[in-house]
Amino acid sequence: MAGIKDVAAKAGVSISTVSYVVSGKRKIGDQTRGRVRAAALELGYRPVIDATTPVGSTHVLAVSSPLRPYTDASNYAAFFLALASASKRHGYDILLLMHEAGDQELRRVADRHMADGVFLLDVLLSDSRADMAGAIDIPVVSIGYTNDTANVYTVDMDFAGMGREAMDKAHVLGHRHVMLYCPDRRAFLDGSNFLVRFLDAAMQRGEELGMTVMRKFASGRSADDVNLAVDEAFAVDPRITAIICEENAAQMGLLMNALSRRGLRVPQDVSVMAACANGSTARLADEMPMNPAAVCERAVDIMVEVLRGERRDVGYVELLPGEYCARGTMRARR
């Protein structure tokens, strides 16, 4: 079991400094105090962890992540695990809230003092949970860019920027007829933040570049559904030479099979790019993935800063840039 000497050595400070952090008898600078706390969290040294946790803390952070009919389990798991891991490093446990009436769950958690703060996942453009954040007395960090950010701290990927970059990439490679293959239409109609922002930006950028862009929604999750979607798309526009797919690895594989079934080779005949998945499509296609680890790490950092009283800039928005990963499935049109 780790002791005070171990914490001091790992933090690069003296034993007396660690002792002062615990006792509070002498003021220790925020940077040094942070190093000591980080070392204690890694080593599991409770005296420092308890001393540096705000008074009255529950040591719990709630995650509001409704299970909707179209929820992608792979994305859901990736973001939840990333949040849990980042929170654990700061000494917090996670309380998962899954009901679709998430605004009322936030009220219940705050009124009953069940958590120190709340993270929002699976955020909609018009999200009642963001409105509720202004009526409760614990901080709310939204991992998703809702239209009204006044009552929350926001961290997300720059999905609009990713949509524009995806179209720029296709255009530079000479593609002028592009299909955007999208998840369940219900997600779009509900206003799923990442889907709408990416699609709207991609469609607008395609129009600016003079491209013909078709938006095609999946009608189901089976191979037959994907085959039908591809057949319908090429029936409308047989000149399609690039497909940008906002789907997970399983659906990406079905898309590749559907193209092969039509005698189309990737990338010789059709270029393919994955977008807005959690990185699980690697080795299948070029992609602009989500980055759950980076987004959730940043969200937890902001939450901890708020709980420590280090920031009060509610309404703050931070968008992380996407990163294009080449896998060899996007090729210049000949």
Rank of each mutant, 00 (worst) to 15 (best):
V63A: 06
A101F: 01
A274E: 04
G328F: 13
Y145M: 05
D111A: 15
H171V: 09
N291K: 04
V21C: 09
D231Y: 00
S128H: 10
R331A: 15
D72I: 15
G117L: 08
E105K: 13
A86I: 03
D131N: 13
T154E: 01
D269R: 02
A332L: 06
R46F: 03
L96M: 06
R46A: 12
K10S: 13
I49E: 12
D50L: 00
T146C: 10
H99A: 00
L284G: 03
D148G: 10
L67Y: 14
I244P: 04
D225C: 02
A277V: 04
R205C: 02
L284W: 03
S271V: 09
E287W: 02
V36Q: 08
I240G: 05
E232T: 11
M211A: 07
A275E: 08
T146F: 08
A62W: 03
E246T: 14
L121Q: 11
S85C: 11
M252L: 08
C276H: 10
D200H: 11
A2T: 01
D156H: 02
L97K: 00
M203C: 00
F198I: 01
R185K: 11
D131Y: 10
R68F: 00
K216E: 15
V48M: 13
K169D: 07
M303P: 04
G210V: 09
A8E: 06
V226A: 10
V48L: 12
L255A: 05
A275Y: 04
S19Y: 08
N248C: 12
R327M: 11
L228A: 13
D72P: 11
S57Q: 07
M211F: 03
L307E: 04
G134M: 06
D116F: 12
V109H: 05
P66Q: 01
H177F: 01
P292Q: 06
L228Y: 13
M288R: 03
H177K: 02
A201Q: 01
G263V: 04
D224F: 07
A135D: 14
A170D: 12
A258K: 03
D50A: 02
